[in-house]
Design a protein around this nucleic acid. Structure first.
Lengths: 203, 203
DNA sequence: GTCTATACGGCGATAGAC
DNA sequence: GTCTATCGCCGTATAGAC
């Protein structure tokens, strides 16, 4: 467990990078070994199989990237502030890891059933406190009740999806990498504005 | 070209189904041949390679499914009515082909550069007339100008993304297939409402 | 046009020496 | 723990008979 750490980690990191960049199916164990600077057999010594390695990487990626977000949703912040923080933090994560979204989408398509069984994925959805806050806030202003399920889906859709179609957005709007990020940066204010407006009494 | 049609079409249809269902990388040419009820060699006689076959299928899929949508965007309907029709038509397409979205997302991850070069994909984004309408409508009511880029991204995000995470939504809300479709059906009214609200003077 | 047969290379995985 | 060598398998592509 002492010396292992280094090699095991090297394999893990190399595989993570390749999986996210090229996709799981298009990454061979030989690629991984080569990138990690070790031998093919080592890869099977530490992780019994490629699928095993993938499971470990996927779980780790989800955990690492959703921890802060869940904390925000579960905090006792007032709803407007909470939404602004959540959107901003979420977008920051995706700016730092632009391939993460399309990787997750590819995975979702690759193994539809498997993914819902993973507790770590399931956890980021439908947090109790946040759900309650939306219901409360909606009651105040609106005749029609606000459905928290739709609200949450709207929110994560508007945050996440643009990254999935990043190449299209860049191409059609003729944006550089920096300009795309600026476009996304704007959404940190437009998305919360839009969401909060739907909760307000109006017209 | 007479007798071909049948066999070529059989291959094309079998491959389409498998690609969308299992993903391109996890579909073998032997799978396709088997499903089409023909021999492996035939598959190479009609389409030079798997990648070739994929290109044909992908182009066809996009064309078939975006034709009506583009027509709506380019029509002379008033904005509210246009948005309602667009959202409804788009959702109907995705209800009929629930795997389409995650398939496209997987492809986008698989070949990022290639996809923007395909005219057929590029075409569905940023239609002139629709863009103008949003600018005009936004001027009327809002102090802050409405950015049509964000508006369009918001719209397709809210329509499309829920299908990409369909397994998660079903699982967390404990929905059957019918209940999921009902949930989505509700969005035909909630999404246009939300979008139109952002264009209105308010608060 | 459709078939059988097969060459070829890359894949994931393992046995066994050190 | 780390390596070399190799297994059996599968996907792609082609040659050649009918």
């Amino acid at each position: 467990m002492a010396k292992n750490k280094n090699t095991e980690q090297k394999i893990f990191d190399a595989a993570t990078e390749l999986f996210v960049e090229k996709g799981v199916d298009r990454t061979s164990v030989r690629d991984i070994a080569s990138k990690a600077g070790i031998n093919l057999a080592l890869m099977n010594y530490y992780f019994r199989s490629k699928e095993n390695l993938f499971d470990a990487i996927f779980t780790n990626l989800v955990q690492k990237n959703t921890k802060d977000l869940i904390q925000i949703l579960d905090s006792d912040l007032a709803l407007p502030e909470k939404i602004r923080k959540y959107v901003s933090a979420y977008i920051d994560i995706l700016i730092d890891n632009p391939l993460l979204v399309s990787f997750f989408m590819a995975i979702l398509h690759r193994s539809r059933e498997k993914i819902t069984e993973m507790e770590v994925v399931s956890n980021l959805y439908g947090r109790e406190i946040f759900t309650q806050q939306i219901i409360e806030e909606g009651k105040k202003g609106n005749i029609r009740k606000t459905d928290p399920s739709h609200f949450f889906v709207d929110m994560i859709s508007m945050i996440t999806f643009p990254f999935a179609i990043k190449p299209l957005i860049k191409h059609k709007n003729e944006l550089s990498e920096e300009e795309f990020n600026a476009f996304i940066e704007e959404r940190k204010t437009t998305i919360p504005e839009m969401l909060l407006k739907t909760l307000q009494p109006c017209e």
